[in-house]
Design a protein around this nucleic acid. Structure first.
Lengths: 106, 106
DNA sequence: TTTTCACGAAACCAAAAGGTTTCATTTTAT
DNA sequence: ATAAAATGAAACCTTTTGGTTTCGTGAAAA
């Protein structure tokens, strides 16, 4: 079972759950109420988020509060940013080309 | 068929393909040679990358050169960065707490 | 002390994902 | 003109995903 952050955020429902949990922790039922699918389905999504470290749970009586651990997204951020040099390099050379073209036309 | 960038980068093979294509375009066969799975399997991965705009193809004779369109990753970058404020805020308040604790102990 | 609430887990299902082998097609080489 | 290379596409298979309904359990409220 692959349980990495990339796979976790691939599902739009899970991204929405993260978005809901970003400002404050919520229990599973409160989260599930915001969706059309069953509580069990949301619980399964939550399980995946927990397993990859994007959500942490602390019980409080009979409730379980789910808290987003957004710093885990840093892994994704770092992966993306390593490629920024490639695409900005391309944009830079395009800009260079356009500048040259413009000065020729003057 | 969901064909968004998030789903595309969820698969480790596709991330590796992107990594191979980052420095320079390659044709499908050359990419496939680097993997243990069949050429057809790689072609399918490539198709997904193309469909979501992460790869562009230009034919040259009987070959098809695949070029990474890494600027498409900006979508992922923006999604992640919107949450950075949340996790840095938490780290900041932790730091604040530690500072206060330290000055108390002095 | 019974209900009720908030889960957790099991059994099951359909569709999608990821893979394979096989065959057709378009360009090059020979 | 043929053979070989580089794909694209089809048919098929197995596992994973995302969902469901049903049932069990521990804490809290009546």
């Amino acid at each position: 079972m692959r349980r990495d952050v990339f796979q976790a955020i691939a599902d739009p429902t899970r991204r929405e759950i993260l978005n809901m949990l970003a400002p404050r922790p919520m229990n599973v039922n409160s989260v599930a109420e915001q969706f059309d699918v069953s509580r069990t389905a949301i619980y399964k999504h939550m399980k995946i988020l927990i397993e990859c470290g994007l959500v942490a749970v602390h019980r409080k009586g009979r409730e379980r509060y789910c808290e987003a651990k957004l710093e885990k997204l840093n892994e994704v951020s770092e992966w993306v940013e390593q490629y920024r040099i490639f695409w900005t390099a391309k944009l830079d050379s395009l800009e260079h080309y356009l500048n040259k073209k413009q000065s020729k036309n003057q």
